[in-house]
Structures are given as structure tokens and as C-alpha cells.
Amino acid sequence: MTDELAESDLAPESEGLDSLRALDGHLAIRSGQLRDRLLAADVQLSLAPLHGVSTALTDVQTMRFEIRDFIVHERLRRLEQLENGLARLRAVHDADLLLGTVCQAVVECCGFDRVMLSRVKGSMWRPWKSYAAQRQDAELQFRDWMAAVPEIPLDHLLLESEMVRRREVAIVEDAATDPRVSPVLREASGHRSYVAAPLMPEGRVVGFLHADYRDLAVTPLDRDVLAAFARAFDGIFERAVLLRRLREQRDQVRVTLQTVSTMLDELASAEIELAMHDHSSALSTGPARRSTQDSARGRLESLLTKRELEVLALVATGATNDRIAERLVISSDTVKTHMKHILRKLRAENRAEAIAHYLRLTLEAGEA
């Protein structure tokens, strides 16, 4: 019976987890057949046939256990390999560097032969970068295509549109017959079978990862591994972006503090005339103070609009464009436009100089 199994159609046609799962399915059927033969056997007859059936059933169950054990261990091996790769990525704190190396990282820690990174903006998506374990002429042609390819509309029938809508990883078992596959991408990439995952670092789909093998079909395990990588990468990339924003805000605050410190040093070193304590001197200097204060305030108001003054006041606190937009209930682009007008009117080269002008006039008004 064992020899019969070995020579039957239960033998796997190709290596890989899919073949093992198919084999396990066939073995499950044969196991049921053997079990039925045991239950239907006449115990009054010779025990020899029953012994043979029992032995075959034991062999089938043993083989099924070994297949499942292998599949589980293969899954654990892939996930361990993935975690090792993610550990290296977590040490990178630069968002641009992460984007530049993500394709190679997927190949190395997920085991694929080729990975493509795409960007999503609005209703369009565009293949951007790729990395292959072995560079070939076809891969070089694919990269040339990515460099020249126009943006691809996210048609509602495309697989990528489905990923944006459902925010889930997808698997394509046969790219030649799957109607969801972009014809342009299929022709340029030569995809036969692949998995794809959306990138959502802030809960919004901003890109895709497509991964495949050169000669093998992808499996559900490949889909799960890529999904695990994408979700982990979302957190890693989002952290890098937040760190960059913090560094930018820290630098802005540092420039502002340095400007204020310089101005305070200038004021402290300047000669300050004390007002006379008598009533007549106080009366004579009172209007002068008001005049100076009004003059400093008037210079700002004559140069800038009310909204520009509000923007500049927030800039002086170290607020970013996004923060200013949120505070004044306007768009970031409007804030940028106001800043351009402010810099031109104050004849300042950058935000730091604009802050210096603002603080100088403000301090003059306060000291007057």
C-alpha cells in the first residue's frame, strides 16, 4: 500500500508550499478512504488485509503530520528572517534613506527575487523604484520603463484601486488571466504571479510594494510575510518622519533663541538714558515714548497686512507652517504665500531674519 501511494498521483508535481498543501489535500482524501475500508472490513476474515490498510493509514497520517510540521516551521523561519531585517531598518532614522533601501530590504528579509515601490497621489499611482536579487537585461529594461512611465490612473477595476479602498494586501496567482492586473504593468514587468501590499504610514495609502519570484509562483505565506513587513515599515517610516519634523522644529527654535539672545545682548550693551524723576521731565518724555512706540508699531502695520502680522507673530514663536495653518484656520499653501510676502516686504532672506526684524521692532515698541 505504501508503494502504491508513492507511485500514485499523490506525488508532488513541483516543489514549494503550494505543492505540499495540494499533497496534504490528496492525503486527506486517501486517509478517509482507508478509514472507510477499515470500518467496512469484516473482522471475521483474515487480519492480513486489515493490517495492510492500518499500516497504510498510519503512513498517510505520518506524512500529513510531517508536511504540516514543515509548513509551520517554514512560516516561523520566514517570520524570523523578516524580524531580523526589520531590526536593521529600525536603526535607520532618516525617512529618505528608508525609502531608498526599502526594496532591497524586502528582497533580503522576505526572500523575494524582485520588489517594486510605487507612489500614490490622489487618483494616480506611479512605479518609482525596484530592486532585484539578480540584475538582468529584463530588469534594466524594467527600470528604464519606470523612469519614463507616466502616472497610471487608479481605475476602479485595478488591483491597486482595490488595495486603496480595502487597505489590504493582495495576491495575484496568474497575472496573465487576472483582469485586475494593469496591462501596462504586466507587459513592462513580466509579472506572472505576485503579491502587493499598500503602505499606510499615517493611515492613508501613499504607496505600494509589489513582490515576485523570477521562476516560482507566490503563495499565501508570501502574502502574509509581505503584509507583516508593510505594517511594520509603516511604523518605522512614520517614526522617521516625526523625528525629522522634531529636528526641524528644534532647529527653528534654536535659531529664534539665538536671534533673541543676540538682540538682548545688543540692548544690554547699549547706553540707556534714565528718565528724570521730576514731573516736568516725565511729562516731556511721555509723549516721546508714545511716539516711539506708535512709530515702531506703525512701521510693522504699514509694511504688513493684519493677517501677515498674525503669521509673523506665530513664526516668531517657532511654529511650523502646518501649525500656523491649523491655528489661523487656513491652508499650508496660504501660509507659504504669506511668508513670501513677509520676506519680500521686510527685505529678509529667510525666516530667521524676518523673526529678527519682528522682535527688534516689537522690543523697540515695548521699551519705548
Score class of each variant (00 low, 15 high):
Val218His: 02
Leu97His: 13
Arg360Ser: 09
Leu27Pro: 08
Ala227Asp: 11
Leu243Val: 05
Lys121Gly: 08
Tyr194Ser: 00
Arg231Phe: 01
Gln136Thr: 09
Gln134Tyr: 05
Arg244Glu: 05
Thr2Trp: 10
Ser130Lys: 07
Pro153Leu: 03
Gly286Ala: 13
Thr219His: 01
Arg78Ser: 04
Arg166Leu: 07
Ala48Cys: 09
Ser46Thr: 13
Leu346Thr: 02
Pro287Ile: 05
Val329His: 15
Leu158Arg: 06
Gln61Thr: 08
Ser332Phe: 08
Pro49Ile: 00
Asp36Ile: 07
Asp3Trp: 14
Thr337Glu: 09
Ser14Arg: 15
Ala196Phe: 01
Gly203His: 07
Ala188Met: 03
Leu117Asn: 04
Met263Gln: 13
Ala170Gln: 11
Pro220Thr: 06
Pro201Arg: 01
Asp36Ala: 11
Leu57Phe: 06
Gln258Glu: 12
Gly286Cys: 08
Gln33His: 07
Arg347Asp: 10
Glu7Asn: 14
Ala316His: 12
Ser182Val: 01
Ser269Gln: 12
Glu248Tyr: 03
Gly100Pro: 11
Glu80Val: 07
Glu74Val: 04
Arg289Leu: 12
Leu27Met: 10
Val60Ala: 01
Gln81Pro: 11
His338Tyr: 06
Glu108Met: 12
Cys109Tyr: 05
Gly52Ala: 15
Leu264Gly: 08
Ala147Met: 14
Val255Thr: 12
Leu246Trp: 11
Glu66Phe: 04
Glu162His: 13
Val195Pro: 03
Glu168Cys: 00
Glu66Lys: 14
Met1Glu: 10
Thr101Gly: 07
Arg290Val: 04
Ala147His: 14
Leu185Cys: 09
Thr362Met: 08
Met339Leu: 14
Ala138Gln: 15
Thr292Tyr: 07
Arg307Thr: 02
Pro287Asn: 07
Glu187Val: 04
Val253Gly: 07
Tyr358Glu: 06
Ile71Glu: 03
Pro12Ile: 03
Met1Thr: 10
Gly318Ile: 02
Ala138Glu: 15
His210Asn: 06
Glu248Gln: 15
Val149Asn: 11
Arg126Glu: 06
Asp294Thr: 04
Ala275Tyr: 15
Glu83Lys: 14
Tyr131Leu: 01
Lys345Ile: 00
Asp224Glu: 13
Glu173Thr: 01
His51Asp: 14
Arg289Gly: 05
Ile171Tyr: 02
Gln134Phe: 00
Glu349Cys: 10
